[in-house]
Each structure stands twice: as C-alpha cells, then as structure tokens.
Design a protein around this nucleic acid. Structure first.
Lengths: 114, 114
DNA sequence: TCATAATATTAGCAATAACTAATAATAGAA
DNA sequence: TTCTATTATTAGTTATTGCTAATATTATGA
C-alpha cells in the first residue's frame, strides 16, 4: 500500500523522538489524556492521576517548557491546557489504537451506550 | 471540537506508554521509519542508521520481543519487518506531524517534485 | 502584617536505559 | 572441517530519568 513512503530525515527523527519521549511517560500521558477533555488545575490533576504534588509539578513544568502545555493563573490555582494541537492529535491517535471503543463516543451516535 | 473525549483507563495508559517508549528512542524510531518502506536486514539497517552492530541488534531484539517487529532468516542475513500495523500507523501519524511535506508523496501526484 | 493554601524549585538518591567491548552462535564457502 | 561473514548475547560502565523530601514562591484571607 504505502511502501513508497520515505524515511524521515535525521533531524526530524530526532524531533519526533523528543516529542514522543515527552508524552511516553505514563504520568505525562495520563495528564495529557485528562487535559484532552478540559483545562485542569494542579490540584485536580493530582486527584485525577494520584501523583504527588512535587512530581506532578515537575512533569507539568517539563511539558510546558517543551511547548506541549500552557498554563494560566486563576487566583492561587494554575490551570493547564494543551497548547500544541499536534500533541492532542497524537494522543487521539493513540486512543484509536489502545482504546478504539472509546473513540466514537463524541463523533458518532452516542445514544448507543446511553 | 472533541472536548467530550474521555480519559484512557489506567491500564490502557500504561500499555500506550510502553508502546510509545518503545518507539520513542531515536535509533528505534529511525529503524521503524526505514522498515516502513520495506523489510531490511541488519547490515542494511546498520548502514542506514549509522549505528553499531551490537547496539542495533539489541534494539531490534527489544522491538521483536515487544511484538513490534518480526524477523525472517534468509541465508546468513536476518530480515526485519514491522509486525504490528498499529505501530506502522503511529509512525505514519508522526510523519504527518513532523514531516507533513513528505506525506503526500505516495498518495497524491508525485510528479510535483520529480 | 501574619498565616495558610496552592504551586514551583532544588538537591540528592534510586531506578532505567543505553552504549561499548568482548564473546558466542549460526550459516555458508572453500 | 576450517574459515569467514552475519547476527546475537552478555557483562560492565556511563548516562539519563524519575522520585522524594525539603524549601521557596506566590496569592489570598484574617
């Protein structure tokens, strides 16, 4: 079928590899999955992921520095959201592979499972 | 747009994370990109990636054990190919993000760049 | 201002992962 | 069988990454 596709140039492979490593970590991926739905503050993400404050904060910081996330202060809370739509797409693509049954909920007739 | 998408269950996140880590490594990703085009033997992959025999072999072995690759002996050579189409899809998705200009070569008019 | 809640940062340790060098295994050729 | 080419495996070292505990910062409220 697509056996003509070319291999990616070295610098692009490196960039892709960095991007993948950034989201491959279990906690970071979990955060991204949650943020796919809506922006959340750190406390909410702690609750949702079960991770410690410090650890989570470090991973959020890492993703922010990489341009994957952006944050916005509201009072004492800091809300995070996915800044780069490419990563949202990647995570959606992942879901299609690892959770195919979840991927039709919002696009197809959602009456099927109530 | 798809703000209704649910977050992936914990065990699926773990599986996705493992899958991502498997392909996130620069050398492994490079190998996958090459194998996207056609099966290749170890010597060819050494040439294509510039990696050492031992190192490459270890990464090939890892991907084989994870079910990403399969190999086939032809004489003294061992040819590798992508065994799991999901990973081929993932790498193609990556290419769409990191190398959008390469992604139309085989599907659209390829006369554009000769 | 002082106290508290939410988040960020730092340092140090623990766990993983990757690489190199050496050696082993296997297939084919002489 | 012996030699060579190809690939695999192992052991040991180095590098990277992640985690915890402690501390700092920032905003809010009393």
């Amino acid at each position: 079928m697509s056996h003509l596709s070319q291999s990616i140039p070295k610098d692009k492979v490196r960039a892709a590899s960095e991007g993948l490593r950034a989201i491959a970590h279990e906690l970071r991926l979990s955060v991204l999955c949650h943020l796919l739905a809506e922006p959340m503050c750190v406390a909410e993400l702690m609750e949702a992921t079960g991770s410690s404050q410090s650890n989570l904060s470090q991973h959020l910081s890492k993703m922010r520095l990489m341009g994957i996330l952006q944050n916005e202060k509201r009072g004492q809370q800091v809300y995070y959201h996915i800044a780069n739509p490419a990563f949202a797409e990647l995570v959606e693509a992942l879901k299609k592979i690892y959770c195919p049954e979840m991927c039709f909920v919002d696009t197809e007739k959602k009456t099927r499972e109530g």
